[in-house]
């Protein structure tokens, strides 16, 4: 088994096919979208492949250390051009092919007009602990 992170972007991913911002959808379309995401996660719980899923607020802050005895320096929010993560789902699957298949299904979540958004999702494998037998 291998864990993968499915990343959903507010910004920074290539433009989806059905590119209508959510605030121009109907309420029913939003409900249908949320239901799809919920059902997807529930289905993966059922197949024993779900690990975690979280949504993130778009507002974020960069923070860094600024030296002994000084408060951390903060920066942001960021310019519109910056890559921005909207949320993630972590899955634990048998193969990379399966991870791609599931990402494809998640990308089919309905948007405006009830049609799939064809949203670009970023798929990133987890680095794992090294196996015991290597030589």
């Amino acid at each position: 088994m291998a864990k993968y992170l499915l990343l959903k972007h507010y910004r920074g991913a290539p433009t989806p096919v059905n590119d209508v911002p959510m605030d121009r959808w109907t309420e029913e379309e939003i409900t249908a979208h949320m239901q799809y995401m919920h059902d997807f996660a529930a289905r993966l719980e059922g197949t024993g492949e779900f690990v975690d899923g979280q949504a993130l607020a778009p507002e974020g802050t960069f923070v860094r250390y600024d030296g002994e005895g000084r408060p951390p320096v903060t920066d942001g929010p960021f310019a519109e051009t910056k890559d921005l993560i909207a949320g993630w789902m972590v899955i634990d699957v048998d193969s990379h092919d399966r991870a791609v298949e599931l990402a494809g299904e998640l990308s089919a979540a309905p948007g405006a007009g009830g049609k799939p958004i064809h949203e670009w999702l970023e798929l990133r494998p987890f680095l794992t602990a090294a196996p015991t037998v290597t030589e």
Partner: peptide, 15 residues
Amino acid sequence: AYLVPEATMAQRISR
């Protein structure tokens, strides 16, 4: 041990 939620593992075993 496999760093997944208990519910996920329960489903995997039951399947």
